[in-house]
Amino acid sequence: MTKHVRWGILSTAQIAQDELLPAFRDATNAKVVAIASTNDKVKHIASKFDIPKIYGSYDELLEDSGIDAVYIPLPNSLHSQWVKRAAEKGKHILCEKPAVLNTREAEEVIETCKKNNVMFMEAFMYQFHPQHQRVKEILISGEIGEVNIMKVSLSFYLENQNENIRMRQELGGGSLYDVGCYCIHSIRNILNTEPNRIFASQQKDVKGQVDMSVVCFMELDNGMTAVFDAAMDRAQIDYYEIIGTKGSIRVPKAFIPQMYNGEAQIIVNTTDGAYREEKVLGHQYILEVEYFSQCVLNGEISRSMMEDTIENVKVIEACFKSIEKETFIDI
C-alpha cells in the first residue's frame, strides 16, 4: 500500500471545495481524513469527497492524533492564529496565501513552526506548474539575452462585492493581499532575486475600505526592474512577460492554467525573427499537494521555502508604506 499523509481541512472555504479537495483526492501520497466546520454544507462536502470524520470546531480537529497535516484556507486575518495553533499541536501546515499580513506575523509563524518541529508552506500553487521551470531553463540558456524587465498582470472582476470577505479590511481584504502577493512572489521566484526599492500606488473602492487595484514598480538586487499590476475590479488577466536584450518570453496562463485543463503556453520571440510556442501540461494543485506531502513523508522541507513567507510579506508591507508615503521605499 502506498504510504500517504493524513490531512485535515479547516473550514469549507470555496478554494478548498473547488481546487484543493479535488487535488487531495487525486494525489498519490495524500488522503483527507477529517474536515472541521460549523457550516451546514460540511456533511455534503464530506460525503462528496469521501471524508470520514467531521468536527464541529477547528480545535477538535487539531486534537486528532490521526491527522498528520492540515490545510488552512480561512480568511487572511485568521491564518497566523491557526497556523500557530496547528503547529503547537504538532501538525504540518499548508496555508493559503497570504499566510500572514505583516512581517511580525511571519516571524512568529516561522518561529512557532520551528519550535514545534513542523513543516510549513504558504500555498503559492502556481509555482508547481512545470511551465515556470521551463521559463527558468530558457532564461539560463541565454536565448533572450540579458534580462532587463519582468512585467506581471493578474486581475479579475469581483462579483457580489457587498458579500465578499475580500472587501473587508479587518479580514485582510484588498487586491494586494489577494492577487498582488502572486505577482510579487512570481517576480522573486522566476528572476531569483529580491526587490530593494519599490514605488506603489492604489485605487480604493467607493467606500475607501480596501484597495481594488495596485500598480508597483520595483528595482531588483540584480539590476533588473519589474512592474506589476494586480486588481479585482476588471476583466481577468493572467500573465507575465520577461524582456531581455535578444528577445522576450510571454506566459499568458501564468497563474490559473487549471481553467484550461492544466495546459499552459510559453511564447518566445527573439530579435533575429524567431518565434515559437511551447505547450506545457501540469496540474499545479495536485503537484503542490504531492510536493508538501512528500516533504512530510521524508521528514524535511527546504528552509528557504519557509523563510520565503517572510521575504514576500516584506515587499507587501513596503507597497503599503509606499502608497501611504507616496514615495519610493527601500526594502
Rank of each mutant, 00 (worst) to 15 (best):
V210A: 00
L176C: 09
V210C: 00
A235N: 12
V210L: 00
P257K: 04
I187N: 02
L287H: 06
S248H: 12
D238E: 04
K279H: 09
R276H: 10
V210Q: 00
V206W: 14
I237D: 14
R166I: 02
C183H: 11
V251M: 04
D233R: 03
E219Q: 06
Q236G: 11
E290D: 00
Q258S: 13
D211L: 04
T245G: 08
I165N: 15
I187E: 02
G174K: 00
M259Q: 15
E263Q: 11
V227W: 15
N196K: 13
L191R: 06
Q294T: 08
Y291A: 08
V251T: 02
S213P: 02
D211G: 07
A235T: 15
V214P: 04
V251H: 01
S186M: 10
D221E: 08
Y239H: 12
I243V: 15
K204D: 03
F292A: 06
K246L: 15
D272T: 14
G273M: 05
P257V: 06
V251C: 05
Y291I: 03
Q294M: 07
F217R: 14
I249V: 09
R234F: 12
I198Q: 03
C181M: 06
E194C: 05
I286R: 01
V289F: 01
R197V: 09
Y275S: 12
S186N: 10
S248P: 10
I243N: 08
G273H: 05
Y182R: 12
I165F: 14
A226Y: 00
A200Q: 09
I187A: 03
M212N: 01
P195W: 02
L287C: 05
L281Y: 05
Q202M: 10
C183I: 11
N269T: 13
I198N: 01
R188G: 01
E263N: 11
I243M: 12
G273T: 07
D229N: 15
R188I: 06
Y260N: 14
V206P: 05
D233K: 05
A254C: 14
A235K: 13
E290Y: 00
Y182I: 12
N269M: 11
V215C: 14
P252A: 07
L220A: 07
R168A: 14
S201D: 14
K253S: 01
K207F: 13
R197P: 07
L191D: 04
I286M: 03
P252R: 03
I286P: 00
V214N: 07
K204S: 06
T225W: 05
K253M: 02
A274G: 14
T225N: 08
Y275L: 11
E278M: 09
D178T: 07
M259A: 15
T245V: 10
N298R: 12
I190V: 13
